[in-house]
């Protein structure tokens, strides 16, 4: 009889496990906020209750054991557990209430999009500079002069001037920066700088200079070649 109560609980447990631990590990997905998990579990629970109470018989099978447990008639040693539940329930309600009314003590969460979409005119451009040992070398020279104070002589984002900047200068040897990007995208980012980002990139925080005011386009294309070569990465191409 009580088995009809065990199944729903197991079901909810499984749903919770999936939402909490499996979904975040699916590539391209992110951890679900607790409020969303809660909502899904509430939906699952109400589904179970509706299903269990559809017929008079299943209704009794579902509520009967709960009723017996709550009233504490003839449950013997489970009495202790019953008191525990009766004590815990108000405490949980109180705790949740406290959490939902307490003002946040943390600075605003910062969900900065690191690679927002570039403006249309910067998609699909190809590097007009011929790739030769010479042009790569020139690019590395420009990189050393203009970029290394922040992005580092080793292309690791740890230049001598990097420490104060938040967000930090990109680490080009990390596979999640330029290796994921096309040359065209880099051209946009270098030319327009941090202030060229759309709102989701939080342009007001970026120290990345707007190089179009200081460097000709041809130098920027050479720097891009030098940067990939130096960081031992290659640009993402059309798949």
């Amino acid at each position: 009889m009580g088995g009809s109560l065990l199944k729903p609980v197991i079901l909810i447990g499984i749903v919770y496990t999936i939402l909490k631990f499996v979904v975040p590990n699916i590539p391209g997905s992110a951890p679900l906020p607790a409020s969303l998990i809660f909502l899904y579990l509430m939906l699952t629970t109400s589904g179970i209750v509706i299903f269990a109470t559809l017929s008079g018989e299943s209704k009794d099978a579902f509520w009967g054991p709960i009723q017996r447990f709550l009233t504490g008639e003839n449950i013997g040693s489970l009495q202790v557990l019953r008191y525990g539940v009766l004590l815990l329930f108000p405490l949980i309600v109180g705790w949740q209430t406290y959490n939902s009314t307490a003002t946040s003590d943390a600075p605003p969460a910062e969900n900065r999009t690191i690679h927002p979409a570039p403006p249309g005119e910067y998609t699909g451009l190809s590097n007009p500079v011929a790739k030769t040992p010479d042009t790569i070398q020139q690019g590395k020279g420009f990189y050393a002069a203009f970029c290394s104070p922040c992005h580092g002589g080793n292309f690791d984002g740890k230049g001598p001037a990097a420490r104060g900047f938040n967000p930090p200068p990109a680490n080009f040897s990390d596979p999640t920066t330029i290796a994921m990007l096309q040359e065209s995208y880099l051209f946009w980012r270098i030319k327009k700088g941090g202030v060229g980002l759309p709102i989701e990139g939080m342009p007001w925080k970026s120290a990345m200079p707007r190089w179009e005011v200081e460097l000709p386009d041809e130098w920027i294309w050479k720097i891009i070649m030098g940067e990939y070569d130096g960081a031992h990465q290659s640009p993402r191409t059309w798949e």
Binding site: L6, P65, F69, L78
Partner: peptide, 17 residues
């Protein structure tokens, strides 16, 4: 038998909470 099942259910429910 039924009671032990209830107990399992309740414990699981509390843990979930």
């Amino acid at each position: 038998h039924g009671l032990s099942k209830i107990a399992t259910g309740v414990v699981a429910g509390v843990l979930l909470a």
